[in-house]
Design a protein around this nucleic acid. Structure first.
Length: 242
DNA sequence: TAGGCCATCTGGTCCT
DNA sequence: AGGACCAGATGGCCTA
């Protein structure tokens, strides 16, 4: 599904982000099917031409610590493996930083410089790995959020991913709630009112109205079993109707 | 060129 | 003590 609209603002930048942030659950929920269209409406990046992934990559020069940079971007795994190399073997740079911070700068001030440095490098590597894991998780989240996945479409930013995911969850929760209400309504028509009073709470704090009898344990050969594994009052097999 | 986004380094804090 | 987590700082890349 592509929501690229010609002429729409590109890039989840400032105004677009503000709109995304202010997009209430209700507003989002209004677009049950075409989330992409909705996202386009808030000016998300769905047509932006930044390119698939920026050429940055994990191995991108680590500027933070005025350490020697890697000449070319590397694969995440490779970058994660090579902490020492990533941080550079430049003792001068390290010493410069150390001197600049002064003796009180490092928490491990009693260590000898060399072990101090190797400790620092290993801490850096761990932190890098942690951030890579975080980014992997974000990628996994992007993969399941309905938006335009395409090489020509810019990747959602981290904040946009989180906000979008939140709204998507809210939307799904509401859809589920509506469906339950509908099923309960249908059951009432058959004299099988759902046990609302005893309904458990969902993670969303709403009373879950399960139209399915929890008593019967036998699997249903019909589709209802495939749906939830629980016998359905709507199902002729579960309901004892021929 | 400014602003957004990002990766990395770093020191501090908390937990095991 | 070591690891995980966090937030601030820094600097590079990209787009409007």
């Amino acid at each position: 599904m592509s929501a690229c609209l010609p002429g729409e603002p590109s890039g989840p930048g400032g105004a677009a982000m503000a709109e995304l942030k202010s997009l209430s659950g209700d507003a989002y929920l209004a677009l049950s099917h075409g989330y992409a269209a909705a996202a386009a409406a808030v000016g998300l990046a769905y047509g932006a031409a930044r390119g698939p992934e920026t050429a940055r990559g994990y191995g991108a020069p680590g500027p933070g610590g005025d350490l020697p940079a890697e000449p070319a971007p590397r694969a995440p795994a490779a970058a994660a493996e090579s902490s020492g190399e990533q941080s550079g073997d430049d003792d001068d740079a390290f010493e410069q930083r150390r001197r600049r911070r002064g003796p009180g700068g490092a928490a491990d001030g009693r260590r000898r410089p060399r072990e101090q440095r190797s400790l620092r490098l290993s801490i850096n590597a761990r932190e890098r790995r942690r951030m890579h894991d975080l980014n992997d998780a974000l990628d996994g989240l992007r993969a399941v959020i309905p938006y335009a996945h395409s090489p020509s479409v810019r990747k959602l930013s981290k904040i946009a991913t989180l906000l979008l995911a939140r709204n998507y969850i809210l939307m799904q929760a509401q859809a589920l709630d509506e469906m339950r209400r509908l099923v309960a309504y249908l059951n009432q028509g058959q004299g099988l009112a759902a046990p609302v009073a005893a309904a458990p709470l969902t993670p969303f704090g709403q009373a879950a109205v399960y139209p399915f009898s929890a008593g019967a344990a036998l699997p249903c050969p019909d589709k209802c079993a495939a749906f939830s594994g629980t016998p359905s009052a709507l199902c002729k097999h579960c309901n004892g109707k021929p």
